[in-house]
Design a binder for these strands. Structure first.
Length: 346
DNA sequence: AAGACGGGGAA
DNA sequence: TTCCCAGTCTT
């Protein structure tokens, strides 16, 4: 066994996290769900979502049988909603092809939507103790520092090198603990800012520490100015104070989620309003603007509110356009900033 | 190889 | 503010 794995496991026994909800019981389904939720999302944020999700949909079959809107509702606020869509689709495939269980096979796992190399490895290692490597943000950071690797880990060349190292230093036993140990080590000790090097059991073999380059590694992503988008959000209330929600397109941001009718400018908004709504467009009340930052652009939204309006004669609510009472909001998948607006939170 | 995809925590 | 995180999929 590599020295790295030995020291890491010893550290994990004394300092790792042994009480995460997906560890008890550590079933393949719960490991899978946790791994997908933890893609680009931190443990503290995931825990309440995970608890709620498994309480509602406790196994693969329950997930496969649930309507997608229920899955979106359970996911609402976590972001990257393709994860929820893929999870649902993968569960259906498991029912059709794998007897209602997650397959215990790397290639079969990677063939499922939403499961890539790292997540497949994490599932096999954690649920079954099989000898597979992972390579997430934590592992990348630890390996870049430990081996003094330069270059942004997002580039294919660096990533390839990191996978090779991750594979090479795999232990022969305790794969579940080893996998968890790497994550815990990166998340709690070898953190992005201010790692606790004085407490580190790997000081001796850490190139970055020896060369005093811990602060510079891993190399950060090359910066680029973010484009900015603007939109008007139409907050339409009827006489019963219900809100008109529209299902978003199946592609693009917030695909398939329920949101407010949206327009790029007033001309477009007025046109949509006049074809759908009985009311006075110019009676709109502007609410506080919402600025939402994405990874790839900035999104400035200006909500406009109307009260006591109705749909025009001949326009009915339908599968993609519905009046929603406040109490019903919780059961729908709604983008976080829109939910905040509708629920009156700050 | 590069871009798309959400939201929140941390500094 | 800015960075970036238990990544994967599409083009």
């Amino acid at each position: 066994m590599s020295d790295f794995a030995n020291r890491l496991l010893a550290w994990f026994d004394a300092n790792g996290r042994h009480d995460l909800p997906w560890q008890h019981p550590r079933t393949p389904y719960r490991v899978w769900l946790s791994e997908v939720m933890l893609q680009q999302t931190q443990v503290r944020v995931v825990i309440p979502y995970f608890e709620r999700f498994v309480a509602t949909l406790p196994d693969v079959r329950a997930l496969a049988n649930a309507p997608i809107d229920e899955v979106f509702a359970l996911w609402s606020g976590l972001g990257y909603y393709a994860r929820a869509r893929n999870l649902h689709a993968a569960a259906k495939i498991c029912v059709e092809r794998h007897g209602g269980e997650l397959p215990r096979d790397f290639d079969a796992l990677v063939a499922l939507p939403g499961i890539g190399r790292s997540t497949a490895g994490a599932i096999l290692a954690q649920a079954w103790g099989e000898r597979f490597a992972i390579l997430d943000g934590n592992v990348k950071r630890v390996l870049c520092r430990m081996h003094g690797i330069e270059g942004w880990p997002g580039t294919p060349a660096v990533e390839k090198r990191l996978w090779e190292i991750a594979q090479t230093q795999l232990p022969d036993a305790r794969l579940a603990d080893y996998t968890q140990a790497q994550m815990d080590f990166g998340a709690t000790l070898c953190t992005r800012a201010e790692p606790a090097c004085v407490l580190c059991p790997l000081q001796r073999e850490c190139v970055a520490l020896r060369q005093d380059r811990v602060r510079e590694l891993p190399t950060s992503k090359p910066g680029k100015p973010l484009p900015e988008r603007h939109a008007l959000l139409l907050l339409l209330r009827d006489a019963e104070d219900r809100v008109l929600l529209q299902r978003r397109a199946q592609a693009g941001v917030w695909a398939g989620l329920w949101s407010l009718p949206e327009a790029e400018d007033h001309a477009t908004a007025r046109n949509w309003f006049e074809t759908h709504i009985a009311g006075d467009y110019d009676a709109a009340q502007a609410l506080a603007a919402i600025d939402h930052g994405f990874t790839h652009y900035r999104f400035a939204m200006q909500p406009l509110e109307w009260r006591e309006v109705a749909l025009r004669e001949g326009v009915r609510d339908n599968a993609d356009l519905r009046w929603i009472a406040r109490a019903e909001l919780a059961s729908l998948g709604i983008p976080a900033p829109v939910r905040k607006l509708l629920e009156g939170r700050t």
